[in-house]
Design a protein around this nucleic acid. Sequence first.
DNA 1: GGATAAGCGAGACGGTACGTCTCGTCTTTTG
DNA 2: CAAAAGACGAGACGTACCGTCTCGCTTATCC
Lengths: 193, 193, 193, 193
Amino acid sequence: MDEEQVSRRPGGRSARVRRAVLDATLAVVADQGLDKFRVGDVAARAGVHETSVYRRWGTRQRLLVDALFHHSEAQMQIPDTGSLRADLVAFTHSLIGYLSSPLGAAFMRVMAVVNDDAMPDSRAELWRSRVDLARTMIDRAAARGEVREGTDARLVLEQLIAPLHFRVLLLREPLDEDLAEQLVDSLLRGIAR
Amino acid sequence: MDEEQVSRRPGGRSARVRRAVLDATLAVVADQGLDKFRVGDVAARAGVHETSVYRRWGTRQRLLVDALFHHSEAQMQIPDTGSLRADLVAFTHSLIGYLSSPLGAAFMRVMAVVNDDAMPDSRAELWRSRVDLARTMIDRAAARGEVREGTDARLVLEQLIAPLHFRVLLLREPLDEDLAEQLVDSLLRGIAR
Amino acid sequence: MDEEQVSRRPGGRSARVRRAVLDATLAVVADQGLDKFRVGDVAARAGVHETSVYRRWGTRQRLLVDALFHHSEAQMQIPDTGSLRADLVAFTHSLIGYLSSPLGAAFMRVMAVVNDDAMPDSRAELWRSRVDLARTMIDRAAARGEVREGTDARLVLEQLIAPLHFRVLLLREPLDEDLAEQLVDSLLRGIAR
Amino acid sequence: MDEEQVSRRPGGRSARVRRAVLDATLAVVADQGLDKFRVGDVAARAGVHETSVYRRWGTRQRLLVDALFHHSEAQMQIPDTGSLRADLVAFTHSLIGYLSSPLGAAFMRVMAVVNDDAMPDSRAELWRSRVDLARTMIDRAAARGEVREGTDARLVLEQLIAPLHFRVLLLREPLDEDLAEQLVDSLLRGIAR
DNA sequence: GGATAAGCGAGACGGTACGTCTCGTCTTTTG
DNA sequence: CAAAAGACGAGACGTACCGTCTCGCTTATCC
């Protein structure tokens, strides 16, 4: 009875399965790590049959990308404090937080490994939208005259965030919280007028 | 010394097998790409039995790390032109060349994916030795008074090379040759006294 | 009942695979002999993937036991002629026929070699059911007053059939057809004057 | 000094290796069982290099046959009590003892499994010599008039010992000590009323 | 007593088959 | 019709053990 009421809700069984699988995906990645992530485990954890996963997502990679990408989307916040330095530090802080989490690290590893045909949109598109979002910090600073003319916003952002990814993906070192200020300062002394 | 531990007789069967397999590994990675890299293919190409590969390297991953790591070692050159900017540009250029090659890109993907227990020495050790090598450029410049005091050499290097890895691993964009100068200049304006 | 547990749908893919593999097993044993029996050959012959065999039977040994055991079951006939001697002779004849066949000999070698944990039921259980079947011959004779009181039916049967197995397994001699009568007579009369 | 004296003894190093390996073979079979019998273990236990084993015996099977066969030879005793029944009972007793030991059981399994080309002499020859030895019991009894004329000594012996092998090889049941008398009596008297 | 043949130690390799792991697909039944 | 259930197809991985090969060295034997 109770069960039936649940199943009649808008979205019905399909939506429930989708949510359950995505949640289970995140849970398994967080618990087991990317290496031991198995589609079968996800299905079991979601209380769903493995075939249902494959029906919907087709491949393990697509499932991972779908789940992790949407999860990462919620994490991204562009601060607006009125000061470039403060903005960048805050932004970097939150990125450090994300990349230090199992899911954040896993997402980056997935992005590093995955073949492009497992991506919903093109890989370039995906990153562009994020960079565009982040560059508003630079643009606003430029409007305030805080930034040297001719500064390449994208390059600046990459010099800011690439070291974080570098450490997470390749060095596998924990990200120090101080890193945010160090990076931003090193960067600003270069680009500040 | 190291060589002797692996195989007592430099011309012996052992040494031949080792060389043949490592060469074949690089060849297969370059030809087929990392995804289609199969231990069996390597063995066939090396004219060696598959079990011999497993005997020595144990796993596909360890084989990849061994071959790609040693290959990458030969690529690293630290220039000494007398000018920090010229050194860094030259260094970055050669790194761009390496990372643009199939083997370079493959090595970075391997490093991003591989579990630490497939590594011969600790991952930290491995990178430290390279960073130490690279920082001689900075140290020399510091001795010449080209560098602001208090500059963190490691951080600087990471801000220089991380964007390259970032693009190769995550963006999958080709590395523009101009990038070298852009990065170095952006960096120097920050650290130059 | 048993069949239903293995595969719910008698005509389904599962059942087809099962039959095909068991048949192929017998065919390969008969053709190639036990030594050259390879799981891969069976799969190929059955038109089935090797993993499907391992999924179901787990090991080469279990597959052999399953196939040969069920095959042997169909061979066992208990005659009822009204005379103990005639019964035993007929029974022994058919056993000689079976043990002289490649499959019969192979089954005995398998039983001699196989570890108990490759057996579906306990080894004791398996033989008991057969002995129980065979002892009906003795029991009927006892009811007819043909047998000395106190005769141990099991022991008698073993003295009848063990020499056949002995020759097949250890001597590797062909079983003479006359052997049936010789054994039965020796058994019935004893050798003491 | 002492060492040198030992090594100069007739047979020298070779003979020492041979003995050590054969002893180790028996020990490993007795300890580990036939299934887990590995040539490498034997070599290790004998304090000898694996290659030395292969040099001499060529195959695992030949090593097993050699070691177990010679060991079994020492076990066989033909009693001479003056009474057929007593002789047979004593003989059977000792056979039960042997077959109940790990080495005895293992030897029979080896004989059941081994290909004939691993045998030093022909298989038939090997058994014949033993049967001939055993039949002296019957022959002596015949000379004493204890045995019905026309009795086939070989068949009788097989009916006596085959059940023991049957139980060891196929039933894997422990051999009861009483079995000796039961078998002998059943054999001597027959079961017909 | 020195040459020489036979055999051993050491270490890896060749080779065959086994069994495992996971992904992704297919079929049949069920709500 | 979509999902549950359960096996199958496919392909690679890694393992286990057998038996072989090469080389350097030691030991027994022969002249």
